[in-house]
Nucleic acid binder design. Structure first.
Lengths: 173, 173
DNA sequence: CAGCAATACTTGACATCTCAAGTATCTCGC
DNA sequence: GCGAGATACTTGAGATGTCAAGTATTGCTG
């Protein structure tokens, strides 16, 4: 099935090409599944905690978190970028938060196509309460790793993230 | 805006506990965000490819992948576990696949509450076509890392996954 | 300045997802 | 065997999510 036998890297040279490629594919697939699994675990727990403790959701928390770091407000498109989701999606979440008075859309006088979304005072108050708890959860969850391991993971994932950003589907020669 | 430019590099040992704790929190939060970001990147690309190449989705592919490894079929609850999603969710995806003849529900004569879900011949044929492509995508995407880096990541994530599984919210001393 | 492509959002159709409640079916203890 | 509780699945409501198409506004170009 794997029609691309191209050796990907410089290998010490003890293995035949067939085994090398197959082994590397295996590692890549396993790595992907494991990455997904870890993320799902953490995400699931955070989500459950947000639901049971604050009756809110991760995307809503995420949107508010973005705004908290931007007192001057953010455009919908900026929210979309930072949250790594579609514009249409941001519209929905913003609608919901605005309806509850946690967030407000302000028209930009310079460009009337734009909304500047800001946290309301109530939104800010509520976010701060949630943020403290959220940090505890994450720190506790990732506390299963040693500081040294966390650092290593952070670096490796940083590398991965960096390179994925510039990756556009070219095959390695 | 980024008020925390705090150097988060190699800190020898000259810091008070307060700073250390804060720094560790910072690392944990960053690690979590980075984990999420990497997963989203890969997942997004795989999802797009599945959509454009095969007009299908990741959950559907995932369900079929589970079945392909289990020729005797799987119970809905087993699918639910392996896919790490809710039972209600599996019902929907199975409905959709069954409607297209890629999958079939067989009643278990021993326990009539149970369905054994199996790939149809057509489902198997279609899955094999997709699986080959899917593997290429993942291998290419993760090919941005060296085999050594992949191995390291695999190990670290293995450790994380392992410990998260047994973690139930206790604070670290 | 007219026209048109680009930009910023919203909308609607669909596909996941979770959770809670509902329906069958089993199992076990008495 | 029978009835309570566990188990297996489905259903329906609500929140995300994508994509494509639609509306408003800008800004560029001739």
């Amino acid at each position: 099935m794997p029609r691309d036998k191209a050796a990907l890297k410089a290998f010490p040279a003890a293995l035949d090409a067939e085994t090398r490629v197959h082994d590397d594919h295996h590692v890549s697939l396993r790595l992907w599944l494991r990455l997904l699994s870890c993320t799902n675990q953490v995400e699931g727990r955070v989500r459950q905690n947000l639901q049971s403790s604050f009756n809110t959701t991760l995307p809503r928390f995420d949107l508010m978190a973005q705004l908290e770091r931007a007192p001057q407000g953010l455009k919908m498109s900026e929210l979309s970028q930072r949250m790594m989701v579609t514009g249409g999606n941001v519209t929905g979440i913003t609608d919901s938060l605005e309806k509850e008075g946690l967030v407000i859309r302000e028209v930009d006088s310079a460009d009337r196509r734009v909304y500047r979304v800001k946290l309301t005072a109530e939104g800010e108050r509520q976010f701060r309460r949630m943020a403290a708890e959220h940090e505890r959860w994450v720190v506790d969850l990732l506390g299963v790793l040693s500081p040294r391991q966390k650092k290593q993971l952070l670096d490796l994932l940083g590398e991965l993230k960096e390179r994925l950003t510039g990756f556009n589907g070219e095959r390695q020669p």
